[in-house]
Each structure stands twice: as C-alpha cells, then as structure tokens.
Design a protein around this nucleic acid. Structure first.
Lengths: 263, 263
DNA sequence: CGTTTTATTGAATGACGTCAATCACTGTGG
DNA sequence: CCACAGTGATTGACGTCATTCAATAAAACG
C-alpha cells in the first residue's frame, strides 16, 4: 500500500480547505488537531445548540449532517443552512453572546468542540490555515445568499434540483462522492423546510424530478443521472462555491508526494 | 451650544458600533478615519461592484442606500441585502477573489473605500474597534438568515411589514430616525425584488398594510403608526439584530462626557 | 414638456397549500 | 410471532395566494 498521505483521502475537512489553498504538512496536522478535538455525539434530531444560548466553542462536523433552523412564533419551521462533514458551524462564535437560532442534528452526528484558547493558539501559529478557515466561512455566507436566490426567485422544481446540485458539489469538494453518487439522508420533510414548500408539494415535485430522469435516490444514496441537465434545470452556477482555488497565491510550496488536485 | 461629542449624533457608523461596545476616544477617531477614507460617489442605480470582479477595498456607506443583488440566467432579479448609512459591505473582502453578486446604489450614494493596508493598520492598533466590526459583520449574516425566514416562511403581508420593521430598527440603531419616522426611499419594484413578490402583489399588499393603519409613507419618509402592532403582524423578533450591547464586557472605561446609551 | 419610471387596477390563470386518507417501513414490546 | 405506534411518502380534491398580462394613471426626471 502507498505511503499514508496525511491529508485528503479520509478527511473531508482537509479536502475541502485545499480547494482554497495548498496547506503545508504542519498546517495539515494542526487542522487535524482541530478536527479531532473533544468529539461529541448526537442522535438524529437532537439539538446541538439552542436559541438563546451563549455558545462557548467552535464546532466542526466530523461525521453526519446537521442544520441551522428557526421557528416562527406560530410554529412554522425554516431550515437556514446545512452542515456537511468537514463543515464548521461558526468561526466567530465568540463575538455574539446569544444564539438567534438552533443548530440540530439531521442524522446521527459527531462534532468536534474547539475552545477559544485552542483555536487561537492553532490559528496564530498557522496563518495559512486561518486564511483557509476564513475562506470557508465566507463561502458559507455565499451559500446562504444562494439560498436566498432559491427561495426568492426559483420555482419549486428549480429549488429542489438546485439543492441536489449544491449538496453533491459540496460533498464532492470534501471528497465524499463516488462518481455521480453520494450520501443523501434528507427526508422530504427536511427538503420542505429547506425550500419553503409543503411536504405534499415536495413529494409531487420530486416525482417530476425523477420522472425527468435527472436523479435517482434509493436507500439514502443519491445518484445523479445527468449532472449537466440537473444544473441547467436548476439554473445552477457554481461560482458561489468559490472552488477555483482562489487562495493559490498562498500555496505552501511542498515538493512532497501530494496527489494532484482537481481543477 | 454643547461641547461637540465626537461620536454619536452625526455619525451612523459610530452610533451603530456603540450598540455593541463602548469605544474609547481613540477608537472613535480611528473609526472616523475609516469612515472618511477616499469617499466615492454613485448615482442611483449605478453599480458599485460587479459580479466577477476582484474587489480591492473594504467599502462603507457614508450616505445613501445600497444593495446586494444577483440575476438568474433568465433575468429574474433578487435583492440579497440592504446597506444603510454606516453599513460595511464586506469586512473580509480580501479573502475571496471573485465577486459572486453585484453591489448597486439604491439612491445617490457616497461610499468610503478602505485599502487593505489602512484597514490592517487601524484594526491592529484598535482591537476593540475590530471586535465591533466583527460584530457588525456577524449581525449582517444574521440579517441574511432572517431574510431567509422571510422568503421561506412568511406571507406577503408579513414579508413586507417585517422589512419595514427591520429597516426602521436598523436606522434607529444608527441614529437615523426621528420618533417613529425615518427615510424610506425604496420603490415598490425594489420591495418586490427584496421579498420575492411581483410588483403587482406588492402594490396590493402594501395597500392592505396602509389600510390597517400600521404605517404611512409619503415623499420617501416612512412614519410608523403603531410599532408594536407592526411587529406582531410581521412576526418580528429583534433578537437577530443583537442590539443588546453584547460586547459590554469590552467597554472602554471613559469617564468623559458621553451621553447615556439606551438599553 | 415629453419621456421614463412607478404605482394602481381588473381579470384570468397557475402554482402551491391544506385537508384527509392511504400505504409502506421501522422499530418496540408483549 | 404478531400487534401497535410512529415516521415518511404518496395521492386526490379543493381552496387560495400570488403571478401574469394589460391598460391606465400619476410621479419623477432630464
């Protein structure tokens, strides 16, 4: 077997950050240290952080899916964001004193908990890593903007197919796809809360998506039949994910055995 | 006349930041330095930054209103955010290489342009100010999340009244209201692009809002008739604006002549 | 003062929501 | 092993909220 590269193949966090800039071996082991800090487990549907709380740690998804969500007073629920493996919840969590929404587990979930002290120690010693974390955080708010586009301007069909595209590409950037397949644990109820549609309408629209032969979902695995067609149907443009290694000017010059990066 | 306090009354930027923490006199003059850096003027509807560009400065609204927006390929436009006097466009603008949306002037507009060098110099010397800027930035993304709630879960009536509440409270936090009145230059077309509704439906719904006696708008000035009722009608909860001086533990202890702060 | 933008109104259509019933699947405990 | 409850997906019928298309009126603009 090949020499174990400390980076990509297994760790979605590292894989994802290297879509921004190439990290040095030291950066990577620092990232892995964050990644494995004080793992905490949750069952599906449990809350990780609740509205009104004062969060005291930076959290990072080790395994499983989570989401941000919020209720209106009359009980309507809206999902505001998805956290996939390797995603960070809130880099700047120490600035605000009070959560204005919930973070909950979508599936069984493991999250790292990084204290302020550790976070500052690590990022002070590894500015390139910090920069990559900023990139990740900004991409997060860009995704939030794209969700606004979704809810404000797209039809039900477009909203759902756009979500599928985004999930696939985000997982792909984290090295969690195989060919055109990836995990997909979202129920139609979740999709309804994400897209602002009723479950009934999601069910019907989803059938239309399948009938068009765009995707297939079975046993919580999604297989995309035609990625180009899916992108066209959803008016998808990947620029908001900023996956073009926009921080390549910061690349560590490591002459080592790293595999080639896509793009 | 009273001794000129260098802070609040005239400068919405300072006024707003002091909803987070009390700044020292030095912090304030540093902020004013940012505030007045290389002012640039735009006519209403001009673009400040265009999609695909590589932004090179941090921008800050000195006077007028601006917005983030984006088009879908087929021409549908969605407004993704509003910038009011004292608002900062993007603190972290140097990390990403390519804008994924536009920033445009809503009204005649004056913006400061802060170079990376100046920004780093000032914030390095004034960490409390930097912290307040982070707070502002996080509140910005919280506002974005609330807009997601708006588009995903609220009715047309609620979306419009919620927007009115938010604008009023944001202007109020920047010291730009008088009693229950404030500037309100948004056309119904803009409101439609913000709320994801058609102009026709905005017109009809807006009439309903007026007929209920909740607000009055005349000559680009909005007067709220009943703020409580407006908040109830729009399912508004101000917690996402984080105006409770959440950074008070960082307060500068200035024994000087500063007026009392609300809250 | 003409020209463009903005606001308003009516009528017809369509997208999506609500209500309610059914069915499949899962896990639980007796 | 089966009964049962709970969740998730599906379907039909119907209602409603919001869009579209037009036409017009009223402001704002250069």
């Amino acid at each position: 077997m090949r020499a174990a590269a400390p980076s990509s193949p297994l760790n979605p966090f590292l894989r994802k950050l290297e879509n921004y800039t190439r990290l040095s071996a030291e950066d990577r082991s620092a990232a892995v240290r964050l990644w494995s800090e004080r793992p905490q487990r949750f069952r599906a549907k449990d809350d990780v952080v609740r509205e009104g709380e004062d969060p005291r740690v930076v959290r990072l998804v080790i395994e499983g899916w989570a989401c941000r969500y919020k209720y209106l007073e009359d009980g309507r629920r809206q999902v505001l964001g998805l956290f996939l493996p390797g995603d960070i919840c809130d880099l700047n969590v120490f600035v605000l004193r009070e959560m204005d929404h919930f973070i909950g587990a979508v599936t069984p979930l493991t999250m790292a908990q990084i204290s302020r002290e550790l976070f500052e120690e690590v990022t002070l010693a590894h500015p390139r890593l910090l920069q990559a974390l900023w990139w990740d955080s900004l991409v997060g708010t860009a995704i939030q903007r794209e969700w606004l586009m979704n809810l404000g301007s797209r039809t039900a069909f477009e909203r759902i197919t756009h979500l599928l595209c985004e999930v696939f590409l985000r997982l792909s950037a984290a090295g969690r796809t195989r060919g055109l397949s990836c995990e997909f644990p979202l129920t139609q109820t979740m999709i309804a809360d994400i897209t602002g549609l009723s479950t009934v309408h999601v069910s019907r629209t989803f059938q239309a998506v399948r009938d068009e032969g765009l995707v297939e979902i079975r046993e919580r695995v999604m297989t995309i039949r035609d990625l180009d067609a899916l992108q066209v149907a959803s008016l998808f443009s990947a620029n908001y994910l900023h996956l073009g290694r926009e921080g390549r000017h910061l690349d560590a010059n490591c002459s080592s055995e790293d595999g080639p990066l896509p793009g």
